[in-house]
Structure formats: structure tokens, C-alpha cells
């Protein structure tokens, strides 16, 4: 992983030496270059805050949607199924526009760009989280429920102490995937004016007219961010596995 990242970096640097490039816009040794670079990197704050807030909400909502989907009662299963199918069918960009421009008209409440972004991202992701949880919970052997039943655990305790801890270990790679996906999809919130990485890059391109260099920096920003997240998820996976296997 590290080597791949290094190669990509070197490639851009090498190609960046040709006369088609004008790295001066983000040259940290000049004042204006340093200001521009700082401006670009400052977008990280909202990209991370937005994605993390959204994923926390979507994991909770996803679980709340997944559990009725596993019920023996048909209406509960129907609710879960319908939620997943409907929400999954709406493109994220459409959902962002609808929440930001449409929802205030409907509800009469004003909504900030940040929360519009969080709601839209969390909503669309929750349908996927629900499916991941459903798969994870269904993968736990029936005997675990039976053992929990035989020691008089309630449904809530069975889920909390027996089923979910095991399910979460199994779905951790998939949850990690969703976090990476969320970080990337947060770039779409730039269209309603969220000052995250992509929006900052767009604004700088408009004033500096150097799309090639600025968007290259943008690509690298996402790349580095996501490589760090992947490494973090892998570390977490190893830690949780070691709990179980001597």
C-alpha cells in the first residue's frame, strides 16, 4: 500500500516537471503559493467533520432499519425493505439538492449547508448500512440465539451482548468501505456551497486558472486521507480479531 502511494506521488512529480505544469500556484516557498496551499488543505476540516458525522448517524439509522427487517412480523419486514429500496434508489447528488433546496420549503425550517449535507449523506448511506448489518446478523449461527434464549437473555440483551459484537467483527471491512465511500461522496456537498476540499479547490481554480495543478493536489488530498483511513480500519480489524483467536 505504502509503495503504491509512493509510486503515484513520484509519477505526478516526474510528470510535473514538464513545461505543461505550473506548480508555482501551490509552491509553499512563495507567499502566495503557501497561502493557496493552506487554503486547499483547510477544506479537510469540513470533509472529515461532514463524513464522520454522517457515518455515525447512518450506522445508527442503518441498524434501526436492519433489526425490524429480521423480525418474524411481516409489517416490520416490509417497513425495512421499503426503506432500503426507496432510499437506495435516489442518487446522492439528487438527495443533497432535495434536502437543501426542497426540504426547507416543505418543513418551513431553514437548514444550514452543513446539516443538509449530513442529512443527505447519512440518509443515502443508511440504506447500505442496513443491508450490511442484515447480512452480518444473518451470518451468526442459530445456536447463538438458542443459547442466549436458554440463559433467559432478553431480545435487547441478546443483540447487545451476543449477536452484534460478533456481527460487527464480521462486517468491519464492509463498514470501512462505507467510510471511504462517504469521504469521497462528501465532495458532492460542494455543489450547495459546503467549504470542504472540493469546494475550496473549485474556488481556487476560478481565481488562479490552474485546474491541472489544483485538482492534482485535490486528488492527492483524497488519496492520502483515504489511505490513512484504510490503514486505521485494518488496524482495528486486527485488534478485534486477536480478541477472539488466541
Amino acid at each position: 500500500m505504502f509503495r503504491v502511494a509512493l509510486c503515484l506521488l513520484l509519477m505526478t512529480l516526474v510528470s510535473g516537471c514538464s513545461d505543461k505544469w505550473g506548480w508555482y500556484v501551490v509552491n509553499p516557498t512563495t507567499t502566495s503559493g503557501a497561502v493557496n496551499l493552506n487554503f486547499l488543505i483547510s477544506g479537510l476540516y469540513y470533509t472529515i467533520l461532514l463524513s464522520v458525522t454522517a457515518i455515525v448517524i447512518s450506522v445508527v439509522v442503518g441498524l434501526l432499519v436492519a433489526l425490524p427487517g429480521l423480525s418474524s412480523k411481516r409489517p416490520l419486514r416490509m417497513f425495512s425493505r421499503t426503506y432500503v429500496e426507496v432510499v437506495r434508489a435516489v442518487p446522492i447528488l439528487v438527495l443533497i439538492l432535495w434536502v437543501y433546496y426542497g426540504l426547507p420549503q416543505l418543513s418551513g425550517l431553514t437548514i444550514t449547508v452543513f446539516w443538509a449535507g449530513v442529512i443527505a449523506l447519512a440518509l443515502s448511506d443508511s440504506a447500505f448500512e442496513a443491508e450490511i448489518f442484515r447480512a452480518g446478523i444473518q451470518s451468526i449461527a442459530k445456536g447463538q440465539y438458542e443459547a442466549a434464549h436458554s440463559i433467559s437473555l432478553s431480545y435487547a440483551d441478546t443483540m447487545r451482548f451476543v449477536i452484534l459484537p460478533q456481527a460487527i467483527r464480521r462486517i468491519l471491512p464492509a463498514l470501512g468501505n462505507q467510510l471511504v465511500y462517504m469521504l469521497k461522496m462528501s465532495s458532492l456537498v460542494s455543489v450547495i456551497g459546503m467549504q470542504e476540499l472540493t469546494r475550496k479547490a473549485n474556488e481556487l481554480v476560478v481565481s488562479e486558472y490552474r485546474p491541472l495543478e489544483i485538482y492534482t493536489i485535490l486528488v492527492l488530498e483524497y488519496l492520502v486521507l483515504i489511505l490513512i483511513v484504510s490503514a486505521g480500519v485494518r488496524w482495528l480489524e486486527r485488534r478485534m480479531q486477536s480478541d477472539e483467536r488466541n
Partner: peptide
């Protein structure tokens, strides 16, 4: 609550 049960496959909680 009054009946305990032991299974063929043990069904211990592995975590």
C-alpha cells in the same frame, strides 16, 4: 428461567 439447556454444538459465545 427454570430450565437450563446444553446443546450438541456447545453454542458458547466465541467473543
Amino acid at each position: 428461567s427454570r430450565v437450563g439447556m446444553v446443546f450438541q454444538q456447545f453454542n458458547l459465545f466465541p467473543h
